[in-house]
Design a protein around this nucleic acid. Sequence first.
DNA 1: TTTATTCTTGACTATTTTGCTCGGGTATTG
DNA 2: CAATACCCGAGCAAAATAGTCAAGAATAAA
Lengths: 158, 158
Amino acid sequence: MKLSTKGRYAVTAMMDLAIHDREGPVTLAEISQTQGISLSYLEQLFAKLRKRGLVEGVRGPGGGYRLARMPNRITVAEIITAVDENVDVMRCHGDGNCQDGERCLTHELWQELSQRLYEFLDGITLDQFVERPEIREIARRQDEESKRMNFVFPRPAA
Amino acid sequence: MKLSTKGRYAVTAMMDLAIHDREGPVTLAEISQTQGISLSYLEQLFAKLRKRGLVEGVRGPGGGYRLARMPNRITVAEIITAVDENVDVMRCHGDGNCQDGERCLTHELWQELSQRLYEFLDGITLDQFVERPEIREIARRQDEESKRMNFVFPRPAA
DNA sequence: TTTATTCTTGACTATTTTGCTCGGGTATTG
DNA sequence: CAATACCCGAGCAAAATAGTCAAGAATAAA
């Protein structure tokens, strides 16, 4: 599996969403601020997440994004495969034609690895992590920080 | 962990080495042919493998590379970390300063994942795989293929 | 001792991915 | 209608990936 910052960003954003889920839709601008991810990049990631049915966009003022399912029904594996379209460890995609139409020496190794990796990530749902006290602590810190920033740099009046 | 073709190539080459270990040093040219990896690229990979003490180079005619240790003392994890210097899933390298000097939301997730991944790959030694009948079968096929190619395109006489 | 063989090294290059910007849309609410 | 926020596509710089190319050094065999 491909484990890049891209997947990390997506999971981070989805956790942010899960944490603030009950407070209504969360705007990408907010996520961008609290998680330190560029807004335009978030837009790209969320386009993919939406296509996979993981989030729903709510347009208009007061809009934003919300989870399309309960947090306990969204796995980390889903999030990563949604944004990292190339999820294979293997070049043959498991077909076994890695070398001139035959299996290469390491075919089975990567197959096993791939499976283990997926099983691990598929066993972790968003809520599992969000409920951890350490995570809640970090989220609280981020909220404080965010409020402080709004005080220092308030939105321009309408 | 970073799982790229680079690491795959390295493990493949090391398996080839392990399979033909008792027949004396194996040249990079041979590995290049049987495994379909560019010779110059192999040179780069083996430079790193040598620095990590996984292989030994034998110069001169009849030379090549051989494993520096017994195949049951070389793990897949070692091979991959040898060529993929950047082995971290996390941007903070486990230090926990992922976001403005603090932990990011997904810090623990990647930490756990990283650990699991490493444990899995560290539990697999070269000999474990080389001994499997399916692998031996593939190796035999490759040897046949190689002989055939030498017959069709023999080395120019001296 | 010459020569062929093979490792060894370094610099250079093409392609892909990553992370991001910009400029426009479109739907929705007040 | 105007502000908010999603939506969409093109493009782009930097880094990583996956190589190539050229020259040199050690050694075994002729």
